[in-house]
Design a protein around this nucleic acid. Structure first.
Lengths: 192, 192
DNA sequence: CCCACATGAGACATCTTTGTCTCACCATGG
DNA sequence: CCATGGTGAGACAAAGATGTCTCATGTGGG
């Protein structure tokens, strides 16, 4: 053990391992602990020294996803300016985490048990509040509920992350694709 | 074995088992063969008499999904009338299969191996062709590629199916939510 | 130089799932 | 009544993943 107070390499490695695992599990959600370890460039033994087990790893991934979402929410300053601009900022800020979100989104195991992690509901609420603000200000239509718009945003983020990783769409279009579809839709807009 | 020419109950049961499995796996994609059997109201032994193994079951599910998609494509008459109306018909027709599609969409195992089932690419092409038709006719904007619109449609179908099964949105709004968001977007539209 | 410590490699038991098998049961038709 | 065949229950081994352990190695600091 390193002496308390001295920087421990494990703390630095842990983040690297977590991100490798996120990248791998995004592509192959059934990857084994051995594959996760290989992907991170460490042995299975060391992986177990970082995370007690697969559950702990997924929980840590979930915590990372929540943290990144909250960081994106904060950076996007959802309360400032037009709601449409805030959505744009949000998608731009959340883009780096989209792959991880896509994995967590499909890992219904997390929600299977009892109550889903409270962190997600708080995030959902803040995103839904943004859409509600846009509706109240008259920017957004009111026949699509904030809950659905929130859900749709997640779905589009996951779809886009997946489509990019498969090479079906260009990474640079990520934010534009999502924002334009979510806000503007596919129908050609008459000049306002 | 039943004599050839006489109706065999297994043929009828098979479809029921397949649909039960689809419903269960949509909610819990890691369900065991035992759980699948229980959900269908049969024993694991009988389940194995229908499908050689888990792989065969998933393959059968994939084939069912492809068949339902193609049936929906045919019923929606994508080539007739305005493209927007065709999209609406397509979503309406595909709604019953949305849960199954959502499961298959996340089962990246299917695409992991070599080349994804040819059936999917044919479906993708037909959907993308619909969006391309809308773009050429001037109905749809051209800065969102048909490939992305197709991907987004799948993502929204999956999100909506998931949101409905979680009770976050009303089932009766399914088609409206998807079509209006996909075509019109969240932004309030000026009167054209 | 020597020691502490993190690591990698691998052995090992355990658990879960799977696939196969057998056998008793029961319904249906002859 | 009896025979056929589908079914459920359960036993069983095989395979895969997991969690834990030990030991050798190498590196870095004292």
């Amino acid at each position: 053990m390193s002496h308390v107070g001295y920087p421990c390499l494990m703390a630095l490695d842990r983040d690297h391992v977590l991100r490798s695992a996120a990248a791998l599990l995004t592509r192959k959600s059934t990857a084994t602990m051995d594959e996760v370890a290989k992907a991170a460039g460490i042995s299975r033994a060391t992986l177990h020294r970082h995370f007690a087990g697969r559950d702990a790893l997924v929980r840590a991934l979930e915590a990372l996803g929540i943290a990144e979402c909250e960081a994106a929410l904060a950076a996007a300053r959802l309360d400032e300016g037009p709601a449409a601009d805030a959505v744009h900022r949000l998608v731009r800020e959340i883009e780096p985490a989209a792959g991880l979100l896509a994995f967590l989104y499909t890992e219904n195991q997390l929600f299977e048990g009892e109550g889903q992690n409270q962190g997600w509901t708080r995030i959902d609420d803040r995103v839904a509040a943004l859409f509600r603000r846009g509706q109240r200000s008259g920017e957004f239509r009111i026949d699509l509920t904030p809950a659905w718009l929130t859900e749709a945003l997640y779905g589009l983020l996951a779809s886009a992350a997946w489509a990019v990783s498969e090479g079906r769409v260009a990474p640079k279009d990520f934010t534009h694709m999502i924002v334009e579809l979510l806000l503007g839709g596919a129908r050609r807009r008459e000049e306002s």
